[in-house]
Amino acid sequence: MSRLDIAGNLERHVVRRTFPFLTRTGACRNLFGPVDHDELKCELKSKLREISERDQTRWNFNFDKDSPLPGEYEWQEVSSSSTPVFYQDSIQNGRTRIVLPIPVTPHKNNSATSECGLQNALVSCIGEKDVVSSGSVLCHSSESNQENRSDTLNAGKTESLTPLFRRQKKTSAPVLSGSTSTQITDFFSKRKRTFESKNIERTSQHPTSPVPVEQTPRKRMR
């Protein structure tokens, strides 16, 4: 019986190994002919331009240059202090919003708290030239994500960041002067996985065998 099992497993294993190969050839058929990506891009751009022009006419406003045009709507530029905060311009980077008052955990991906989101927002607010310099200063800690941090999570407060936020607090918002106040991350248990150990883990997995360990013996039996 155990023999049968092994045979069955082997068979399944063979099927599993050949299956993707077979489907790949099947699905690779080109049903609609080659796509001219440049042409497509061009068409889409002209379509967008068309839409933009329609918008511009509808609202008699040049959305690209932020300038009113004569027409049905009487545009006026008002100070944002005289209008609800809601109408103020904003920046979107992925789905991220700022959650922590002092950025602590940089997430590279689309996760919630995002130091990097803030920095990208900063960066994108600025324009072209300064981006590189200030961006690199601010974002250098984002190179390693939270997972492979070797130190505590609060290490996100790098020297270049802390003064910026501290100063902000002292100058513009005396109400929130609690720069020494406890961070939520103080309450997290320390991660045991360090950068080094994770690296070892990663390299120790044989790069050419994506098959889970338990299946390796079966493979040998072949």
């Binding site: 103020q88 920046i91 902000q168």
Partner: peptide, 14 residues
Amino acid sequence: RMYNCHMALTPVVV
């Protein structure tokens, strides 16, 4: 619902 530049820099917003 997106934070704006100004707010991103002051703790008030968050």
